[in-house]
Amino acid sequence: MSIAQIEQAFIDIAKARFGTHLRTVESLPADWDSETFKRILRLAPGLFVVFGGGAAMDQSTDIRSQWVLLAVTAHASGERARRHGDSREIGAYEIIETAVPLFHDRQVPGVGLIRFEAIENLFTAAIEEQGAAIYGARFSLPMTITAPPPGGTDPLDAFLTFNSTLDAAPADGRPEAEDVVVLPQ
């Protein structure tokens, strides 16, 4: 099972459990910028799946993949409601306390067993100023990174466009060349 398929499995399981209690369940990149943060605030309350990579195991293509489920709330009625919830919206604690037992010891068919590792309060002054609470639940899942089967469809065959930006560190910080190549199909 690919990283994308496992990510989708996390999303599908969470959507089935939380139903309409969350505005969204979707994936996020591991690195955030200010636009990502603004977007997740608009989608709160939500649960966001982040693939965090993984360390190689036994000098093979097996990894101990890391997954983080981010509970994000943005109650207008204050920080306590963001953590505890209120009569109108679910709180970050409720999201995390539902997600941890939902995923811990869950078997991913053909991959392995999801293991709960930790909960982290991702509080910062900037997050608080924006009126949000964010908590992360970290899980691990052993998995194998596999090559496409011989004679099968190569996943790279599906690309229609290749984009490239070349940058030899010019003084003005702008790329020296950019190109888009449309591949024949």
Score class of each variant (00 low, 15 high):
residue 73 T to W: 02
residue 125 A to R: 12
residue 37 F to N: 09
residue 136 G to S: 09
residue 180 V to M: 07
residue 139 F to L: 09
residue 8 Q to P: 06
residue 150 P to M: 09
residue 74 A to T: 04
residue 134 I to W: 07
residue 36 T to D: 12
residue 156 L to D: 11
residue 89 E to R: 12
residue 42 R to I: 00
residue 101 P to H: 02
residue 79 E to V: 11
residue 25 V to C: 08
residue 78 G to H: 03
residue 5 Q to I: 09
residue 41 L to P: 00
residue 185 Q to I: 01
residue 7 E to S: 13
residue 34 S to H: 07
residue 69 L to G: 06
residue 133 A to L: 07
residue 31 D to S: 13
residue 5 Q to G: 06
residue 126 A to P: 00
residue 98 T to L: 04
residue 26 E to Q: 13
residue 30 A to W: 02
residue 123 F to W: 13
residue 141 L to N: 05
residue 174 R to E: 15
residue 21 H to V: 00
residue 112 G to W: 06
residue 8 Q to M: 11
residue 136 G to R: 03
residue 48 F to R: 04
residue 167 D to N: 15
residue 86 D to Q: 03
residue 91 G to E: 02
residue 77 S to K: 10
residue 98 T to V: 02
residue 13 I to G: 00
residue 184 P to I: 01
residue 79 E to S: 11
residue 41 L to N: 10
residue 122 L to R: 11
residue 177 A to S: 10
residue 108 V to M: 14
residue 165 T to P: 01
residue 149 P to L: 08
residue 67 W to F: 09
residue 147 A to V: 09
residue 59 Q to C: 07
residue 172 D to I: 04
residue 182 V to T: 12
residue 39 R to F: 01
residue 46 G to Y: 03
residue 119 I to A: 08
residue 7 E to C: 11
residue 175 P to F: 05
residue 86 D to R: 01
residue 151 G to I: 02
residue 178 E to D: 10
residue 95 I to R: 01
residue 65 S to E: 07
residue 86 D to V: 03
residue 136 G to M: 04
residue 41 L to E: 12
residue 63 I to R: 13
residue 94 E to C: 01
residue 96 I to D: 02
residue 97 E to K: 12
residue 68 V to N: 14
residue 60 S to C: 00
residue 71 A to E: 05
residue 126 A to C: 04
residue 149 P to M: 06
residue 91 G to A: 05
residue 99 A to R: 01
residue 82 R to S: 10
